[in-house]
Design a protein around this nucleic acid. Sequence first.
RNA 1: GCCCCCGUAGCUCAGUGGAUAGAGCAUUGGUUUCCUAAACCAUGAGCGCAAGUUCGAUUCUUGCCGGGGGCACCA
Length: 535
Amino acid sequence: MVIREQLAQAVSEALGAIGVEPVPTNFVVERPARREHGDWSTNAALASSKAAGRNPRELGQELADYLTENRPPHVESLEIAGPGFVNFRLAPTWLYDVLTEVVEQGEQNYGSLQIGKGSSVNIEFVSANPTGPIHAGGGRWGVYGDSLARIMARCGYQPHKEYYVNDRGVQTKLFGQSLVARKNGEQPPEGGYQGEYIEQWASEMPDDVDPVSWGIERSLTDAKNVLAEMNVEFDTWSSEQALVDSGAMDAALEQLRSTGNVFESDGATWLRTSEFGDSEDRVLVKSDGELTYFTPDIAYHIDKFNRGDHIIDVLGADHHGYILRMRAALLALGKDGDRYETLIGQKVKLTSDGEEVKMSKRAGNIVEIRDLVDEVGPDVARFAYLLQSIDSPQTIDLDLLKTEASENPVFYVQYANARIHSIGAQAKERGVVRLPLAEVDLTSLTHERELEVLRQLSAFPEILEVALAERAPHKITNWVRELAAAFHGFYRDCPILRTDTDPDLQQARLWLAEASRVGLAIGLDLLGVSAPEQM
RNA sequence: GCCCCCGUAGCUCAGUGGAUAGAGCAUUGGUUUCCUAAACCAUGAGCGCAAGUUCGAUUCUUGCCGGGGGCACCA
């Protein structure tokens, strides 16, 4: 059991013992923002004073007195502070337990949670139209979705990463026509695709192929390549056309009809989505007999419901209006809405020379993810994307990522890892051997820098839990930066291999470095960023 | 008009129902006979406005102001 739970339980018991009935459950045990407020703190007295009809400071004092008499493990002293907080000061022994736990559980298991209990989660993201290069926003969703999947996997879920390919419909036809036009040296049709890439691809296109399917393949190859370079891989690429061809779409339409929520109007076929929370009804089949995007997408979501326990769609803010209609369709079909989750991300803006970069040379009116990856490399790009919440619109300064690469946060973290490996290499050279952990006395770790590293490591399980609950990979980014900062401070002030370092202390520090390495490896892996051993 | 997101330091962004709100960049200055100075240390300034809920609000609610996005028989 982790220390926080031990303390919470002790507080709960103490409240009962000093006569607070019923024992409240609305209190928390947390890490105070300020070090001088101790290692852990609880607001239990404040949270229960009103219900108990007691003065919070007096109640806090009683609580502190009781816990001083009946001390939870590692607790050295307690004090009452502020309006009624009870602060715990712990002996560093609790942090030695953390070190041991990190090392013993290792990269695979430290901080791993079983919240998901093995349930499957289907995460769909990017799903850009296969009519051209992936844009910078697509890169954000790619990195975000991939990292979220990694987080979910570490929390006991079985994530399945999926990309939906809209390989039929009006847009694909226009795309094919644009390719043909360019191949024949003509202008693309009205509403067609204008980017330079169309000319490039058209020149690659053989004469005897179907331009639409060839173009889609070309587009998907492009997308797969650039996403793979960013360490984003999908388990499944689902084809809209295949869904229609298989009859799944007709079956879905039939299923919808059987619910009595489908009607004909103005020559089109509509779904009464307004009955299920949407602002208006939506067209399933247009008056010209063509399907809308919506209809196969419903079939696709039915398919996903059949394949996964929980369904997540990662969408750009420009698609948020679409959510209610899909949810309505699923509700109309009697699906459990709790199993369907949509995550909306705000858009990305790239700047250079203080000006927004509005287009790529190749793609025309969009900024390609390719440009970013070629410019700064996958690690820098990924880390930059994962630096902030997807709820916020993001501004990425290309110049900063390029010219000040050495100041870039990703290198700061990777450099910590490189330093650890350098210590290992140096130790080997000098014949310093790390003894088994069980033979090492960790109590020599008393330096504030050493303890800070361990505090950071101890926080990881909580951070992971929050990152999962809030679907927020950037919490991991922040944590790994803080861990790196703690390590750099330790590295600076606590020499390991220097000849005047006490042998026992040296052993303890070697293990502290190893624990740091494990922590950095876990964090970087969740972000999908590499952990180079040399820089 | 309706819906969604955002408004925190000069810039880019974290963060929290609590006790003195943080980081990076930028500025200025300092640190290395010894494990990588891509490091460490120091340095000013900030929660858009107003009510409400609360023992306590920058955090929750509402309104206003400001910015972005969306309101198709496009996808």
